[in-house]
Design a protein around this nucleic acid. Structure first.
Lengths: 254, 254
DNA sequence: CGACCGATTGACTATTTTCAAGTGGTGTGG
DNA sequence: CCACACCACTTGAAAATAGTCAATCGGTCG
């Protein structure tokens, strides 16, 4: 069961600089957020934050800590992961338009989630166009990312999808300062090890492949010396080789 | 080459009630839109409105007439159709955040497009929260639709994708008043004929299939009496049969 | 009529899934 | 400390699915 941990305090929030409030000047934060009551919820691994088709709540969420997967499923149980949220992500936006949730949000690791009441937020938006713009910008980025995934799933073959995924993962680690490791392992950043946030079967579910197909290509690339793996951490040895497989730049059709 | 047809006139706009201005009271329309200069552009079939990776313009667009396909492509030329725009759709929203276009917009039929300058629009948004809400709501719907496609492409097999597409198409005709026919054919609405906006190869490109696979299942279903087709118009004879194939409700795994 | 173009069909091939068996690491209880 | 179970992952062989290549059909247009 999700636990209420505390009220939120934007000024001391660990992800404020990544949140939709990042552009608010610090001095405004204090006075502006007067009366804006957020709460921090704690979820354990595998707990559901909200479910596809459920009524959306009068809140929207920001991930503070941990990882969340956003999924949709077919009536017969097949699951497609849409994306993985990292700290700072805004989610549950169906609440904005009062529609039922279009997908399920499930904790991939133990998580902390900040719950922002819609009423208060819309007052803030009116007072501070920066917030409004930040939200808009999230929406557009979110859509772009989902469109990119659509291209991956619709147009690419299994090895291309997988290679792209590993490369993107590594980029996103780089962009986030090389550290999202869920298990607290300390690794030399020079060697660029990355902890895999997803299991084989989840990677399959993200890319529309079976666990066996994922496993086979990974094994293949280990034999070829493209990648190395130990204890759920992965290292790219030959980015150029992977890029040729991935079809991300001109070197595409070999 | 796209042609400037005229200045836009919101009051007499044929798609006003489907546009982001649909919630503005008519009396406000007149005075509010003072100084908001839109222009109507005409594109021929197959012309490009904007290209993936190009700088976004200082405008955003509303489709007035015709159909537009939104696509992304891989460096080696493979193309994925993301969605098909119908009159009233807002598009080119990368302009909102000043990013390069994430996809290509191409006229599927001869089109009329209304170009809304961002500067003027953002003034309007501030003056009329209805517009702002309409835009937000479009964004969310757009994201939901793209997520739905992600599930289609990632989790479904060829016949499921195809059957779902035909059924959705028919629903969307129903929702839009049974008439989007691009070639002006007049058909009895009782028989529920629907003109196919996409060629076989475009359907393939939308669903991540080859033209041959599309063709084979269509032929198969014609033999089985699920559908009928003539002159680019399609009729669903056995929606129940198709639904069983499509995996959209409980009757999924048969 | 003949050229062209989209769609269809068939035969074959490639890719990916399915099913089944096996490996290796981790944690628990005797 | 070992035996055992458990679980994620790996591997192999067979089957299913979808793609490729090539020939053909049928309609449209000059």
């Amino acid at each position: 069961m999700p636990q209420l941990k505390s009220k939120g305090h934007c000024l001391s929030c660990p992800v404020r600089h990544r949140s939709i409030f990042s552009d608010l000047p610090e001095n405004l934060l204090n006075e502006s957020l007067e009366g804006f009551e957020t709460s921090v919820m704690v979820y354990e691994e595998d707990e559901i934050i909200f479910k596809q088709n459920a009524n959306s709540s009068e809140s929207v969420y920001t991930l503070r800590k941990g990882l969340i997967k956003i999924c949709k499923s077919l009536p017969d149980g097949r699951i497609q992961i849409m994306r993985v949220l990292v700290p700072g992500c805004l989610f549950g936006i169906d609440g904005f338009v009062g529609e039922n949730y279009n997908h399920t949000a499930r904790a991939l690791t133990d998580c902390e989630v900040c719950r922002l009441p819609l009423g208060g937020l819309s007052k803030l938006r009116r007072k501070h166009p920066e917030i409004d713009h930040a939200i808009l910008s999230r929406f557009v980025k979110n859509l772009r990312q989902t469109e990119d995934m659509l291209l991956e799933l619709g147009a690419k073959k299994a090895p291309e999808k997988l290679a792209t995924y590993i490369l993107r993962l590594s980029q996103s680690f780089a962009a986030n300062g090389l550290k999202l490791s869920s298990d607290g392992l300390n690794l030399s950043s020079k060697e660029e090890w990355h902890s895999l946030p997803l299991s084989r079967s989840e990677i399959g579910s993200l890319l529309g492949l079976t666990i066996e197909t994922v496993s086979r290509f990974f094994s293949d690339w280990k034999r070829k010396g493209f990648i190395k793996e130990s204890k759920g951490n992965i290292q790219i040895l030959d980015a150029k080789g992977l890029k040729e497989v991935a079809c991300i730049d001109e070197s595409c059709g070999k």
